[in-house]
Structures are given as structure tokens and as C-alpha cells.
Design a protein around this nucleic acid. Structure first.
Lengths: 210, 210
DNA sequence: ACCTGAACACCGTTCAAGT
DNA sequence: ACCTGAACACCGTTCAAGT
């Protein structure tokens, strides 16, 4: 056995049954041994899950159209988000695990290069990568919640119902916007990227007013 | 017994032992019964945890200084983030649960009002609340990961080590920025808020170029 | 209706003992 | 050093049976 062997077993389990089934006990079972044996190579369950994410990040597609830096940046982010959208459970995990695998680093490198090309000053660029990737990951994690509540639509329609019937006295703005608060799932993502990029170009580090 | 009773028991367990201990079995034990009894009032564990978050959101502080709308908006967001920072496990949960409690709605209402005051057009405002709260929540969830890796500092210093020793050929921009990629935890949050606010003011819906 | 004992089907992690 | 059986200490959820 080896770390790679354990990860390979975890990965196949992941593809066949999803992240929820990638448990120490099940991976051990695939390898015909007891769970204790894995601890020689893997420090804990989180370690295992982080490896799965990094393996998947190898598939982040190169943005196809040779557009300007902004277009390629958005394309790269869409590639990253596409991977997480297919496996929303991993987005949740990435939210609280600080990825540090080789493929994640390559992604950070690419984004830094694009920001540099776009003339974003170094000080801002370092923080901007974090902001962009945080947004992309969070958006994927949120979509995971949507998927879950689509399976049992109670949550979403319950929320819509609450908004529709909200008290005009205490929540006037919520009533005014109505279900627009829940709309535009597709364009919204793209709008978010633009907000971030425009904001990064406009906002200097240290220029923290109020 | 009642839903409120169950939630009250869960809340006290949460304050004494943290979210990880708020399990069906333990809450039931507090109420001197078996876990099955809770299912009359609570649909599942997630339901229970969501109630805890909304209860905490009652404490989101009013921004103290009567500043301009931007200052009050940032103050409100800081108030929200402060609650999540104290209980980072809840930030992770909020990331994938679509809060819909009364206190969360009140927070959305307040932010909508401030954006309106700031002259943000309605179409943008509806999406902007989502973006601002997503960012705040994600930031708190990420801080949760930091806390965890501070307990076992291996993750963070390992990441720092990886960055320091990264290959200049393949990862030139990462090497150039070095540990600046991991710096400025405090100012960074405020910079992020400004990026978002500036971006929202600059970016119209539908103006999705490239 | 509301409540519950008991069971089903699982978990992660540790540790003493073996090879 | 590497590996493992067995145990410890838990989980969520369901369901038949009771009140």
C-alpha cells in the first residue's frame, strides 16, 4: 500500500458513490483491510477529501476563446466553478479546508498572471486572487444548497412564500423586490465576476475609507 | 414538549459545547428522552442547526457610528461577520443551508435599505445583497479553517513552505508574491467590502461583457 | 396526535499486539 | 516500519408499539 494507492481507492469510490461515501471505513474496505491501516498514509478524513478535490482540479479547462485578459480571467474562473458545480459537496469542503495541492497552486498562478496582464498592481493582485476564488467557491457551495433544496423543494418554495407574504411594515424593501431576490441564477454569476473585477480595478489597498 | 423547547435545549447545548455536540441524540438526552421524540418537531439535524444560526443573528449589532450609508453598510456587514467569527462552525453551515429565519430576513431588509439610500438601482440591489452576504459568510467560513489550522499549525505553515519553495519556472507569479498571498488578514476584509461596494456601483446588470 | 424503545446501518480514531 | 483486530465512543433516522 501507499498514499497514492489509498487516494486512488478514494477517488474511485468518489466517482462511483459520491463524497459522502468516501469514509475511512469504506476506503479501507475497498483495499481489503481495516480502517486503522489508512492512518499510516493519511492523517484524517479531511486529508483524504482534500486530495480528491486537487485531483479533480487537474481538469480545469483552459479558457477556449483567446479573448482579452478579462475574458480569459472569467473563462478560467468559470472552468474552476464548473468543476465544483459538478461536485457541489467538494465546494463545501473547499470552503473550509485551504486547498494547497499542486493543481490548486497552478490555478492561483494562472489567475495572478492574468491580473498582472490586466495591469492590477501587485499588492491588489495578491488579495484579488483570494477574493475571486473565494467568490467562485462560495457560489458553488451555495448552488449545492440549491440542488439539495430542489430535491426537496420545500426549502426554496418556503423561502419564496416567506418573501411573498412578508410584512410590508417591517420589511418594505424585501416586499418591494419580491422574488427578484431569488432570480437570475445564470447571469448573476457573470455579473458577480464583473463586480469583483471592476471593484478590484477601482479599489486600492489601504484606501480603506470609513 | 414543543419546537421551541427543542430549540432551547439545542441552544444551551450549543453555548456550552459547540455545534459539533448539537446532535439529535444529545439534545434528546438533555430533554430526558430518546432521539426519536425530536422528529415530531424537527425535520432533521440541519433544521436544528439553522434555528441556532437564526437565534444568534438576533445579536447582530446596529452599526454604532451614524456615518454615511457606505459606513453603515460596512458596519452592518461587520456586525454580521462578527457573529459568525465567534462561531465559525455556523458559517460553514450557513454556506450551504439558505437561511430563511426572521432575523436573517431583517438583515437582508436593512442592507437593501442602505443600498437604496446609496442610490444603487433596484435590479442591482437585489443581487448585491446576495453578493455581500455571500462574501461575508464565506470569509467567516474561511476564517474557521484558519482557526482550525492554527490549532494544528501544520496546514498553514505547510502552505507557507510550499509557497516559499515553489518552482520559479512553473509558478513565477506565486514566487514573486510569496507570503503576501497569505498576508493582511484584517485589512483584507475591509478591502473586500470596498471592492464589492465599488464594483456594485460600477457594474450594471446585463452589462455582461465578454 | 404525540411519544418512545429498540433497532438498523453506519461513523472516526486509537491502541495494543503482531509481522 | 508497517499493518491490523478489536474496541471505544459515538452518529442519524425509522418504525412498530404504546399512551
Amino acid at each position: 500500500m501507499s498514499r497514492e494507492g489509498v487516494i486512488a481507492a478514494a477517488l474511485s469510490l468518489f466517482h462511483e458513490e459520491g463524497l459522502a461515501k468516501v469514509t475511512m471505513r469504506r476506503v479501507a474496505a475497498v483495499l481489503d483491510t481495516g480502517p486503522a491501516s489508512l492512518y499510516v498514509y493519511i492523517s484524517d478524513t479531511e486529508d483524504l477529501h482534500a486530495e480528491i478535490l486537487d485531483a479533480l482540479l487537474a481538469d480545469v479547462a483552459e479558457p477556449s476563446s483567446p479573448a482579452d485578459w478579462r475574458g480569459r480571467l472569467k473563462g478560467t474562473l468559470r472552468g474552476y466553478i464548473a468543476v465544483l458545480f459538478e461536485h457541489p459537496e467538494l465546494a463545501r469542503m473547499a470552503m473550509s479546508t485551504m486547498p494547497s495541492g499542486a493543481n490548486y497552486l497552478a490555478l492561483v498562478e494562472k489567475i495572478l498572471a492574468l491580473l498582472k496582464e490586466g495591469g492590477v498592481p501587485d499588492g491588489q493582485a495578491a488579495w484579488a486572487v483570494d477574493l475571486l476564488l473565494l467568490f467562485a467557491t462560495a457560489q458553488a457551495a451555495e448552488k449545492a444548497a440549491w440542488k439539495a433544496s430542489a430535491r426537496s423543494p420545500s426549502n426554496f418554495s418556503a423561502l419564496a412564500a416567506i418573501i411573498e407574504t412578508a410584512d410590508v411594515e417591517t420589511l418594505p424593501n424585501i416586499v418591494r423586490h419580491g422574488t427578484d431576490l431569488l432570480s437570475g441564477r445564470g447571469d448573476r454569476l457573470d455579473w458577480g465576476f464583473d463586480v469583483l473585477i471592476n471593484g478590484v480595478l477601482k479599489t486600492r489597498r489601504m484606501e480603506t475609507k470609513s
